[in-house]
């Protein structure tokens, strides 16, 4: 009887301690952590807005790729449409392909397609239903960029530049990283933070 009492007490104390730990930490956003710089990303497959499947590997250029999480409705992402398209044009010739991913559950594939047409986005845009790839890469906002080299190794993760308004750009972080990658140098600034819209995940 005494043994049972001690066991019950022990289990109860574990439950209390576990509960206190959860309660004490407060409610935080349960966001997956992004892969560390230097990690080789696993290949994945996603459909484009027409339903055609593409793998990350098949879309990666001879020098690498830029994955950018984008949105149709986020004004910050939209402020970068022209810059992203120019980026895709400029670096295609340098062996780096831009890949857009839309993970917002509020923006269906048809909307992604019409948005790309209206905004003249010619790079491949994939639809990440269920935000599986956003979860895998720990992406939280739009726009948010990931640069991989030809072998799929992550060399940059963060913002495109420091300012939504082109007149205020003083730090072209993503382009700087791509230039270093193309010229075979190690990327010196591997990330950067900027304000953006939260990715609308499935609840």
């Amino acid at each position: 009887m005494k043994k049972h009492y001690a066991l019950t007490l022990f289990l109860a104390s574990i439950v209390i301690v576990a509960f206190a730990a959860v309660a004490g930490s407060g409610s935080t956003s349960d966001l997956p952590a992004p892969p560390a710089i230097g990690t080789t990303l696993d290949d994945f497959k996603l459909p484009d807005a027409d339903g055609a499947e593409h793998s990350l590997k098949s879309l990666t250029g001879k020098n690498g790729a830029v994955i950018i999480f984008i949105a149709t409705k986020c004004p910050v992402s939209n402020a970068y449409n022209d810059r992203m398209e120019k980026l895709a044009q400029d670096y295609k010739a340098k062996g780096i392909n831009v890949i857009g991913i839309n993970s917002n559950n509020t923006e269906p594939a048809a909307e992604v397609k019409s948005h790309a047409g209206e905004k003249h986005l010619t790079f491949t845009i994939l639809k990440d239903d269920g935000n599986k790839i956003a979860d895998r890469l720990g992406a939280t906002r739009t726009p948010e960029a990931y640069v991989i080299d030809a072998g799929g190794k992550l060399v940059y993760h963060g913002r495109i530049d420091n300012a939504q308004n082109t007149a205020n750009i003083t730090s072209n972080d993503l382009r700087d990283a791509l230039d270093e990658l193309v010229s075979g140098k190690q990327v010196s600034k591997t990330g950067g933070a900027a304000f953006g819209c939260t990715i609308k995940r499935v609840s």
């Binding site: 939280t140 906002r141 948010e144 963060g158 933070a193 953006g196 819209c197 939260t198």
Partner: peptide
């Protein structure tokens, strides 16, 4: 924090 909005801290 990477700048995703909104963000709330207590």
């Amino acid at each position: 924090w990477d700048g995703a909005l909104p963000a709330t801290y207590l």
